[in-house]
Design a protein around this nucleic acid. Structure first.
Length: 957
RNA sequence: GCCGAAGUGGCGGAAUUGGCAGACGCGCUGGCUUCAGGUGCCAGUGAUCGCAAGGUUGUGGGGGUUCGAGUCCCCCCUUCGGCACCA
């Protein structure tokens, strides 16, 4: 440190900036005569290397010490005041929509939020610097049970609890220094938002996609509400952990099954060509102003060939959703009942095994189950059905390792060979899948074999290892699912599955006993909740209308398509007219659990005038599942005040689909599937042109507690980001979270390495000392390192490999540190590359460098308050262009060639790069090297493998 | 049981997709600085044999393909996540 510097006087500096907060520590303003060192802290071991816990020292202190808290709060304020991150629609720039799953306002930002947002923010900032017009909004998923539970527990109204949490969390978000543009914020519990939930619901109702149905539902006895299958973990409620019960309840469903086929992920052949973009940081100019194509950009110059449904989503999500949807193509086959015209229909995907059917099984709930029982078997059947019904679904699924069943006494006839087949009832058959009846083929199905063995049913081999393999199936190992059909009449000898499957399908269809059919595992989505804190269902029940409707069929089409029973009386279902929306959630309601929806107790609110007949009618007292709210919020962000439709279709066509969607793997089967469903629905009602809402999905991992378990209050292993930020500053925390592990990884919080990150930032801060204001010629290797870093950091950010991007910056810093002097260009480039990760320090240093440029000889730290008020947002480092690398600088004049003998590395050979392709010359040089000679000596060179510019390998024997 | 992801130093993790394994960071060891602790700076750091030069070995285990394998193929083991009687 040789420059003369102004004395470090914290108060003076702080005074000069708005809202800067004095450092923590007790010796503020007290002289500390310990020799000033860059390493700072004074005494206690506990504070080693922790910047903000350092006591400010005066005296012979270097002037510009890295004090994160001071600069971070300063810049956050300036960025906000100057609206540095406000999104403006600009048709000359290519829009880029960065989305992160909207947080639930639980009360505090946790370290997981920081992890998710730090990476998303760095990516968004890079895109912005690379010339995109980045739209990065955020909001709050503000309805839901926790608010209600917290309210019950503490006597605060859910709305007050939620809104105050939102305020707290907004402040915490600000402390991250993210570029989120809050002017587009959407909060789902406000009428201006949920009004459109109601609008969408009614549109779905009008199209028959929202309907009232009665089913056995998952019921949480503690939360007093219905749960979706996705809301059950290990048979327990995902919120409160109570054991989930089965209860028959009438409720609202969304017919997501109508979209099952469209929700299936299919490989997209048409987009194999992908886009021509080679590297986003290099292609800014060419692509600016282009319309969105709906296709993702390629990464790192490689054309992606694995788009599915035209978008780039992780394989794990695609396969998970496809399994969940469970599409299977099979055949419905009719078996005539013995002694009658009635038939029993089964669904199978293995019709080719029909010759091996030795019994039939019905689910206990099957309509024919009771009816078929013969006199002799009636008692046993009734009893079996009764016990089955008493078992919860959990018991049936987990406890029944051993399959049980009961014979009905009845038989049916196999359409292919007239064989007489006994009909059984067993609770391992699921009533709601297929026809609720299956054919038992113990010769080629393990489960059927187990059942047949237990009840001594016949076993026929229909699939053998070869066309002549007709050996008996006597044990589980003999069961074959693929091979050749045997004992199958005219089909014997065909190989399975194909062509046997298709041939048998054709045959049965022609015969009129079978129909090709597609089955799905996916169920309709139950969306009504018997809870207070949610979107009220925009539905009115009117008994008078139902009377009119049933009296006068002419009126039928005018009314809702269904009715419901309330207190034993039929009521027509009338949607609230769109112009009457929103149906506001009343504030004063007794929301303590009573076993009925809380809104039902708000008697005044419940009473409503029927919009059809003008008579007295009742509201629906239920609320919508919060997954409904989160299925379309990203469209609302576009213009959260828009009051004609849920979202502005003009803006949607310019800014959506979402370009990149960050979120958690836990939403693979719930949220992201629903959001895809809603997008397809919006497409169908003419609001959108495309069918997939996000071009690219990135899923993050989880930061576990330091003990390796999921963070939870009860375990006491929760890391509060505020504490860490207080110690090190937001820049260090952001950078550390990006650096600690790959984004998809799940690992425990281990802050040991954080000091390395802090040291990295401080070294960059100190690097300014080496900057020479007069420019000088950079050496080839200087250029090489700089351009290599620009390229690698850019492509790593695009590929969401933030850990390696930062490692590359560290490597370059190590290189620069070893140099005596560095150019301003190098330093500026370093700051620009750092800016997405550590926005505050990058801005601070960038601005001081600008000052340096203007007042070269000024020996003062010349930031003054007049400079803040005149701060031009366009001069922010975050408004600068991402540096452009040049390939020509990345070619070194020297190359290192690895010399191998029999594949083992023996020597390195450094030659002029002009020689790179000259195999003969290199071979000669390499053989001359001592170490290589030694290994070749006395042996004969059989071949020389040469990889230009990389390796020369002598194969000797 | 099925589907998906993954097994690399003391730790978190790299490896341009078949070409010098262990980048970067933490930790550790030694040195300089210091009254001293820490900070800071410099050097070293997979294991193993060797005074050294250098050698051997090494990416969960076992086979294979290749001049060359962490990377590709076959079998097995383990961990994590998801689904789970879907006919």
């Amino acid at each position: 440190m040789h420059k003369t510097r102004r004395k470090y006087i914290p108060k003076e500096i702080e005074k000069s900036w708005p809202n800067s907060v004095p450092q923590s520590g007790t010796s503020m303003g007290k002289p500390n005569f310990a020799k000033a060192t860059m390493g700072k802290p004074n005494s206690a071991k506990a504070t080693m290397g922790k910047p903000n816990s350092a006591k400010a020292t005066m005296g012979k202190q270097e002037l510009r010490k890295y004090l994160p808290k001071t600069i971070e709060e300063k810049w956050q304020q300036i960025w906000m005041d100057k609206k540095v991150y406000q999104f403006k629609l600009d048709r000359t720039k290519k829009p880029y929509y960065t989305l992160v799953e909207l947080p639930y306002p639980s009360g505090n930002l946790h370290i997981g939020h920081w992890f998710t947002f730090a990476t998303a923010d760095a990516h968004a900032r890079h895109r912005r610097m690379a010339g995109w017009n980045v739209f990065f909004p955020n909001g709050f998923d503000a309805f839901g049970l926790p608010a209600e539970n917290a309210a019950i527990k503490r006597g605060i109204h859910p709305k007050d609890w939620t809104m105050s949490n939102i305020e707290t969390m907004r402040k915490q978000f600000d402390s991250m220094g993210s570029m989120i543009d809050w002017s587009h914020q959407a909060i789902t519990c406000l009428p201006e938002y949920y009004r459109w939930n109601q609008w969408i619901f009614i549109k779905m109702f009008e199209r028959g996609l929202a309907y009232r149905g009665k089913t056995l539902s998952n019921w949480c006895p503690s939360c007093q509400t219905v749960l979706a299958n996705e809301g059950i973990e290990d048979g327990k409620c995902w919120r409160c952990g109570s054991i989930v019960e089965q209860k028959e309840i009438e409720q609202w469903f969304l017919k997501i099954t109508a979209y099952a086929d469209r929700l299936v992920w299919k490989q997209d052949q048409s987009s194999v060509l992908g886009s021509q973009l080679s590297d986003i940081s290099q292609s800014v100019n060419q692509s600016a102003g282009k319309l969105k194509t709906g296709k993702p950009e390629s990464e790192n110059g490689q054309l992606k060939t694995d788009y599915w449904n035209g978008v780039d989503w992780p394989q794990s999500v695609r396969e998970g959703q496809n399994n969940w949807i469970g599409r299977s193509e099979g055949l419905e086959i009719d078996f005539k009942l013995e002694g009658g015209d009635e038939k029993l229909t089964v669904f199978t995907v293995y019709p080719e095994t029909i010759f091996g059917v030795t019994y039939m099984v019905l689910a206990p709930e099957h309509l024919l189950a009771k009816k078929l029982a013969t006199k002799e078997q009636k008692k046993a059947v009734d009893e079996y059905i009764k016990t089955a019904r008493n078992k919860t679904e959990m018991e049936r699924k987990t406890l029944d390792k051993e399959k049980t069943g009961v014979f009905t006494g009845a038989y049916c006839i196999n359409p292919v060979n007239g064989a007489k087949i006994p009909i059984w009832i067993a609770d391992y058959v699921i009533a709601t899948y297929g026809t609720g009846a299956v054919m038992g083929v113990p010769g080629s199905d393990d489960r059927d074999f187990a059942f047949a063995s237990r009840y001594n049913l016949a076993v026929i081999r229909v699939i053998g290892n070869d066309p002549k393999d007709t050996g008996e199936v006597t044990k589980e190992d003999d069961v074959l699912e693929e091979g050749y059909l045997v004992n199958s009449g005219e089909f014997s000898g065909l190989s399975t599955p194909e062509p046997a499957k298709e041939k048998v399908k054709d045959y049965l269809e022609q015969k009129g006993s079978g129909r090709r059919i597609v089955q799905y595992h996916l169920h309709d989505w139950s969306v009504s909740r018997q809870r207070y804190w949610g979107t009220p269902l925009p539905i009115i029940y009117c008994d008078k209308c139902w009377e009119l409707k049933t009296q006068n069929s002419k009126l039928k089409s005018e009314y809702g398509r269904d009715y419901t029973e309330i207190d034993g009386k039929e009521h027509a279902i009338i949607p609230v007219p769109l112009e009457n929306l929103p149906v506001e959630l009343p504030y004063e309601v007794d929301y303590t659990p009573k076993g009925k929806p809380p809104l039902a107790t708000a008697e005044e609110w419940m009473q409503v005038t029927c919009p059809k007949c003008g008579g007295k009618a009742k509201r629906d007292p239920e609320t919508l599942d919060t997954f409904f709210d989160s299925s379309w919020y990203f469209y609302r962000y576009l213009d959260p005040k828009y009051d004609k439709e849920p979202f502005n279709p003009d803006l949607a066509s310019g800014l959506t689909p979402v370009d990149i969607y960050f979120g958690g793997a836990e939403h693979t089967l719930g949220h992201t599937l629903y959001a895809r469903f809603f997008t397809k629905f919006f497409h169908d009602i003419g609001l959108l042109e495309y069918e997939e809402f996000a071009k690219k999905r990135i899923q993050h991992g989880v930061i576990l507690g330091p003990d390796g378990f999921r963070m939870s209050k009860s375990r006491g292993n929760v890391i509060d980001p505020d504490d860490v930020v207080r110690e090190y500053g937001a820049d260090t925390v952001r950078l550390f979270l990006c650096f600690m592990m790959p984004y998809e990884a799940t690992a425990p919080w281990n802050p040991a390495a954080i000091s390395g990150i802090y040291r990295f930032l401080r070294r960059i801060w100190d690097l300014g000392e080496k900057v020479r204001t007069s420019n000088f010629e950079l050496r080839t290797s200087d250029l090489y390192h700089m351009h290599r870093t620009i390229k690698k950091v850019g492509s790593d950010i695009e590929g969401i490999h933030m850990n390696t991007a930062i490692a590359t910056l560290m490597e370059w810093l190590n290189y620069l540190s070893a140099k005596e002097k560095i150019s301003k260009e190098e330093y500026k480039t370093m700051l620009l590359l750092l800016a997405p990760f550590a926005p505050h320090i990058a801005e601070e240093l960038w601005q001081s460098l600008r000052d340096l440029q203007v007042h070269t000889d000024e020996k003062t730290d010349s930031h003054g308050s007049e400079k803040i008020s005149s701060f031009n947002p366009r001069e922010s480092i975050h408004a600068q262009a991402w540096p452009v690398y040049k390939d020509e600088y990345m070619v070194s004049d020297q190359i290192t060639i690895v010399v191998q003998v029999n594949g083992r590395v023996r020597e390195n050979l450094t030659v002029a790069s002009a020689l790179r392709d000259d195999k003969e010359a290199l071979s000669e040089k390499a053989q001359a090297l001592e170490n290589v000679k030694k290994h070749i000596a006395g042996k004969q060179i059989k071949t020389v493998v040469y990889v230009p510019g990389r390796i020369i390998n002598f194969v000797v024997a």
